[in-house]
């Protein structure tokens, strides 16, 4: 499209104006406000008083537990989801007949788009006192406690984010040239060796994308620890809800949020450099 007419240019501007306004008012401005507030002070009634101080950041260690929990559960949850998701993605992409593939894939993805609230609630119901523990009582294991434990939180994480992990891995495995597997086989590679040296490396872009998506969402998670961790497992997201809605300490909350976003940016860009660099020759995004 060379030498676009003036009319065409005006059309482009007109089409982009609402979206630009939206990004400016609903994304850029709020993020700038949070950044500014994080250097402010809390006023007596809550909210914000203008100031320039690093006090809020100096106070971050008071929320150390939330940061520590998020930074251990997010990578751990991502890893466990990956371990659960990979065999399923492999099964769907390589083993299942194409006739069933689409249906089975859709069945994995669909739960992700349904209410996380209701799906997490289902686990309160299942792991709670009247669920599995009652059943265990019948067969003699008394007093087992499942809800409000780290175990419950990890189950909730896998349940919530498994679909998001399966999909990108599936996509990269499906693109994989099956002739490579045959070649490895013909050259005397054992199935295990073929997997390690051919399949796994070629599916790395999908693994990287899936891990990144799950990790990012877990960093901001609130519902799963709130419902299944019972105050024992407290994430940054729970700290933010507390700071903004209960104690109304906006400047400190903003500092926590800014720190969260910075940690996310650093880990994600480090991670991308590490994993995407290797896959750079496959210059394609899975998303």
């Amino acid at each position: 499209m060379t030498g676009e007419s003036t009319k065409g240019r005006w059309l482009t501007v007109a089409l982009l104006t609402p979206t630009s306004a939206w990004f400016l008012v609903m994304l850029v401005m709020p993020l700038v406000v949070v950044a500014i507030f994080s250097f402010g002070e809390r006023s007596a009634v809550g909210g914000y008083t203008a100031s320039f101080t690093f006090d809020q950041y100096a106070n971050l260690p008071s929320r150390f537990t939330a940061f520590r929990n998020t930074l251990t559960y997010a990578p751990f949850g991502t890893l466990v989801s990956l371990l659960v998701a990979y065999p399923l993605a492999y099964f769907l992409a390589v083993k299942v007949s194409p006739k069933w593939r689409l249906l089975l894939l859709v069945l994995v993805i669909v739960p992700f788009w349904t209410s996380l609230l209701i799906r997490t609630y289902a686990w309160i119901f299942i792991l709670g006192g009247r669920g599995i523990p009652t059943l265990l009582d019948y067969i003699g294991f008394e007093g087992v406690r499942l809800i409000n434990t780290p175990f419950a939180v990890v189950v909730g994480i896998i349940y919530g984010y498994l679909p998001l992990m399966v999909f990108p891995i599936f996509v990269s495995l499906e693109r994989l040239d099956k002739r490579l597997l045959e070649a490895s086989n013909d050259l005397g590679g054992t199935p295990f060796r073929t997997f390690l040296q051919v399949t796994l490396p070629l599916s790395m872009p999908g693994v990287a994308t899936g891990c990144m998506l799950v990790f990012i969402l877990l960093m901001g998670e609130f519902l799963i620890p709130a419902f299944l961790g019972g105050g024992k497992v407290f994430f940054i997201g729970n700290a933010l809800v507390d700071l903004f809605l209960q104690s109304r300490n906006w400047p400190f909350g903003s500092a926590v949020a800014v720190t969260l976003v910075i940690i996310m940016l650093i880990t994600v860009s480090l991670y991308m450099r590490l994993t995407m660099g290797r896959a750079a020759d496959r210059n394609e995004s899975i998303m």
Partner: peptide, 11 residues
């Protein structure tokens, strides 16, 4: 994260 959008938009 949605939670960051939520608090940022709120304040």
């Amino acid at each position: 994260p949605g939670i960051v959008i939520g608090i940022a938009t709120l304040i």
